[in-house]
Design a protein around this nucleic acid. Structure first.
Lengths: 198, 198
DNA sequence: TTGTTACCATACGGTAGCGTATTGACAACC
DNA sequence: GGTTGTCAATACGCTACCGTATGGTAACAA
């Protein structure tokens, strides 16, 4: 398996739309990172040549940008929109921690993007998404009655832990654990990072 | 400044040793990541051509490997060897947390290597270094009287936080803070991740 | 002084991308 | 049924790297 070629998955309709390219770009991004989102390999995977690509997009960067905007939207919906429903802040933080263990794909992409922050297309997006998330945590901690300063520091710490856990789980295979071990780990994290109820 | 060229720093002796190449490789690695450690750019920076390089090393990978081994040694000495002196485990953990804020270069390199775990030269090294460090934390927490399981989870969490903080500080410039703010942050982290004395 | 060794330059061939230009094919529409 | 618009193939030139082959030169030794 040459890691990129056919993937003769779903719809092999004979003509492609820009949306097809964006989807394929996200797939490849999730699988192999930003560098792998290249025109010619993508075309090969989709069974066409790059002559097709440059009809839909003016450049590789344009595709990347479009794909990333798609991801940002999907990610927002998948994770945060649902949790906003939970009112109790302690419950909401806890749900946030647990949900992060699922919805893998979106986090895998986030992790890959973290490695490509040198690229101008990626950097502003990641700044945006990350500060949004930290602020989300911040308001959560504030709602628990923490001081402005403590809440900020705890939010930073929790988000740093999120990033680190991503890397450890996805990159360091020495660190991987089985399901129940992981459940206990998440539990430990919640206990450590969410202040106890009064 | 073309980001790579001269750097006509220190010793511009007219002949180079393999050690000079390794040093230059580490410099470039710290500045621009693993991908930047390429033969021709390095040669340009050193004011020679790659004809020279391939006399000292058989391949680019061989250079990278040598440079990384050098880093591993330096890193070990710079951070851990000194902290081993501290006996009280609580003090030692605290010192570890604080010291990580300094010794920047070594951590910058670690952060860049984290992004290159797909490369066969990098991966085993990072597995080795990372598990070594987590185990170091583990014994620290055990010495504080935590259960095997709790200590393991706390060590994982602390190391995840380390990784995440690295990324946030080095990549997300929105997250950067001034010195006193950072000091307070580290203090908060220590309070949160090191169990209080009985 | 004459080799030898250690280091370096030059020139070459190869790969993997990006992006452009031109032409082709098929479908939709009038 | 011809025209137009949409998607695609081919061929090209360009850049930046890797690695090889071969010859040159300065320093040091015999």
């Amino acid at each position: 398996m040459s890691a990129v070629e056919p993937i003769s998955g779903k719809s092999d309709k004979s003509r492609l739309s820009s949306s097809d390219w964006e989807q394929a770009a996200l797939d490849l991004l999730a699988e192999q990172g930003v560098a792998a989102v290249a025109v010619e390999p993508l075309a090969r995977r989709l069974g066409v040549t790059k002559g097709s690509f440059y009809w839909h997009f003016p450049s590789r960067d344009a595709l990347l940008k479009a794909a990333l905007e798609l991801w940002e939207k999907q990610d927002q919906e998948a994770v945060f929109d649902q949790i906003d429903a939970i009112i109790d802040p302690r419950e909401r933080l806890y749900a946030l921690f647990r949900r992060t263990s699922r919805e893998i794909r979106s986090h895998v992409i986030y992790s890959h993007l973290l490695k490509a922050m040198d690229q101008p297309v990626v950097q502003p997006l990641m700044e945006r998404v990350s500060t949004r998330r930290v602020n989300y945590l911040l308001t959560g901690y504030r709602a628990l009655g923490m001081s402005r300063r403590d809440a900020m520091n705890r939010a930073r710490l929790a988000y740093a832990a999120y990033i680190g856990i991503l890397q450890m789980m996805l990159q360091l295979k020495t660190m991987r654990m089985n399901h129940e071990e992981y459940e206990a780990y998440v539990e430990h994290i919640a206990e450590t990072l969410i202040p106890a109820a009064v």
